[in-house]
Structures are given as structure tokens and as C-alpha cells.
Amino acid sequence: MTCDEIRLLLHAYLDDELDAAQSAAVLAHLAGCAACTARYEDHARLREALAQPDLYRPAPDALRERWLASQPTAPVTARPRRGPIALALAAGFAGALLLTSPAWIDSLRAPGTADGALVAQAISGHLRSLQPQHLMDVVSSDRHTVKPWFEGRLDFSPQVKDLASQGFPLAGGRLDVVGGRSVAALVYRRHLHVINLFQWPDEVSEPRPRMIRQHGYAAIEWSADGMRYVAVSDLGEGELQEFVRDFREGAALR
């Protein structure tokens, strides 16, 4: 082989991408060519240098928390470098276990209930509502218009509160389906963001609000006075918590 051919092939050799015959040919050439050997050694050194962990850019915590369960999980960047494939596979598997941490499972399968599935459906409902024409069946910032609209459409009377002065103006409402039943979905706004507040009657008493993150969206669910609520938005956790607090403390329309 000529030096020109080796210039290309020595990279594939370095990457262990050559078959046995080609590898032998590269080795044979290197044994007799000082220039190619020097180049090979440089590239081997460069390759080792590029394996320095500081060059790897793992996902920042903000992104991680957005997509994974609310508990921060251990970083999974500790993939063994240049290790045997079995080790890499094992690390990948361990990483998968770490990422599907108990926090996520808890939030999906609370003991004895299907809460997580309901919240997942509420988040799906939120996503669906963002498609054109899907957000609102009744468009009004006036709770005295929105609340009566639900009469006769639902077998319960949803709580509708005016939170405009807290910075969460009511935009309207629509019917949605969660857990196989019709529920009320109130649409509030915060600047350019949309908050969907789903509610339906439920015996379960779970007054403590619970934050669930899924697919980049935050959801908070809680119960009060025989009603179950799930608020979903792409707002930050803090603002969504503020919304939930304001709603819980806000005066109900009777």
C-alpha cells in the first residue's frame, strides 16, 4: 500500500473498523514507514485527548428536570470510555434504571390509584388543546359567562374563579375527557402561556398538591371539597405553583 492509501485507512484502523486483512496490510506498512507511523501516533494521541471527560457536554440540570421526574437523578455521563461493549451495555442499562427512578414510578403509579395515568391524560389534553381550534369551546374572560356554559353539559358544577388581578386572566373553557369521564377544562393565561385547569368530582381526598413533570410540561394535582383538580402548563414550576395557590385561595363563584 502507498502512503496516500494509508493516510485514509489508518483512521479506520484506529477506529477498529477494518477487517483482518486490511488491518494486517496497515500494520505491515506502518512497520516499514516512519512517516506514517509518526502520523498514526499523533492521531492516536489526539484520539486519547479527545476522550477527556471535560470535552463532553452533559445536559444541564434545567433540561434534565424538565424531562425527568421531579427528583434530580444521578448523572449518567459515566459511560466507560473505550471499554468493552458489555460494560457499555451494562452502563446503559444501569443508566436507564437510574433515569426511570422511583420518583417517576411513584408519580405514575401511586399506590391503589391510577393518578399518574389521569395526570398523563390531563397533560395529553393540554397538548391537544394547543392545536388550532381546540383550546376553547366558550371564549370569555367573564366567569359569569363561563360557569353557566358548563351547566347542562356536565353532571357537576365546576369551580370557576377570577384570577385576573393575580395575573392569571380567565380565557375560556371547554369540555374534555380524562379517565373516561367528561371533565371541565378552564383555560387561564399567563402572558403568552396557557394553563389548562381540569376538574371533576372525585371521592379521593388528597389535599396536598403534587407536582408532576412529564414531557417538558409541569402538572400539579390536588383535591378539595370532593373535586379533583389538575393544572397543566409549560410555565415554570414556580409560576404554576403560584397559580395553584391563587386558585385555592381565590373566592369561589357561587
Binding site: R57, L68, V76, G92, G95, A96
Partner: peptide, 11 residues
């Protein structure tokens, strides 16, 4: 289980 373990690689 299948996609999110590669969040770091994606980033």
C-alpha cells in the same frame, strides 16, 4: 425508558 436515557448524548 428508551429515549430519555440519551438526554446527555442529545445535549
Amino acid at each position: 425508558a428508551e429515549v430519555l436515557p440519551w438526554l446527555d448524548a442529545a445535549y
